[in-house]
Design a binder for these strands. Sequence first.
DNA 1: TATGAAAAATGACGTCT
DNA 2: AGACGTCATTTTTCATA
Lengths: 173, 173
Amino acid sequence: MNSRPGGFDALDRQIVTALTANARSSFAEIGAAVGLSATAVKRRVDRLRETGVITGFTATVKPSALGWRTEAYVEVYCEGAAPPRRLAEVVRNHPEIAAAMTVTGGADALLHVRARDVEHFEEVLERIRVEPFIRKTVSCMVLSHLLPESPEAGASQAAPQGAGAGSPGHEEG
Amino acid sequence: MNSRPGGFDALDRQIVTALTANARSSFAEIGAAVGLSATAVKRRVDRLRETGVITGFTATVKPSALGWRTEAYVEVYCEGAAPPRRLAEVVRNHPEIAAAMTVTGGADALLHVRARDVEHFEEVLERIRVEPFIRKTVSCMVLSHLLPESPEAGASQAAPQGAGAGSPGHEEG
DNA sequence: TATGAAAAATGACGTCT
DNA sequence: AGACGTCATTTTTCATA
């Protein structure tokens, strides 16, 4: 029923660009920029959302303001062949994992982890390494960002909340 | 300029959470959710933007819908000490770089690159490696995602063209 | 917190191709 | 049929108090 599943023309692209730059601009503003009426822009935006091109609108937040000040990338090495299915399941159980993907190279998967602080990160790491099929992990902490940060989810729940859920009772060098 | 301790309370956190979930929700809607009037919410949002907690609003787009189907992480090794300032400058000149940060470990920086296809990625890589202070790069291509993808911007500008529209020139002018 | 004017969003209807 | 534009109505924003 939806015409062409790939019908994505230059106008749509301009609209997406405008909304990516500022998700709160009005349809009239966008229309002025791309040469359409506000109504026409709205119709296209509605369609772009229905067809899944635009998946949502979010505020970009300085994560440190939310109390998430520690970030790392973790290479995961599995025993034998990496079972993506199983890995995906594990990954979903840890809200601190903002992104996870299988990759080429020595490692089987790469995780993007956000935590409140180093202790919290250590706890996440320990939780992950409990999985029997994970042979080893190699972490690389993010020191500073060279580009303005995009959301990358993960911090959506936003509750620094002191040490409540954070401090594990056990530590390890 | 950092969020003053105490200048960011539970209400602010709820507001930020709401805006992260949907950047286009009205102040009244947010107010209903957090227990404030629309006016009060607006004042807080204005302040959150002024203080840099909220850095902007953007549309989240499914990159594959835009025709960006290749993704990789690139470790950058620099000559001598890595000059973050210089690196940041370089990074900003390549729209395909969705994220970039300095990291611990052997590499000096980690880049998150999005490209249309492998050829486009190779071209980006060559562009980056032209920089004299970059000694070597180690890439790791993303094979598949284990979590629903988050925005991570990057596709904001360029035009991938040809996500499947078939015949161009029709549409309108 | 409330009020009211201005701006935006939304839906209906008509035109063009 | 599909896509656009104009207009009317409702909702939201925003500067008053």
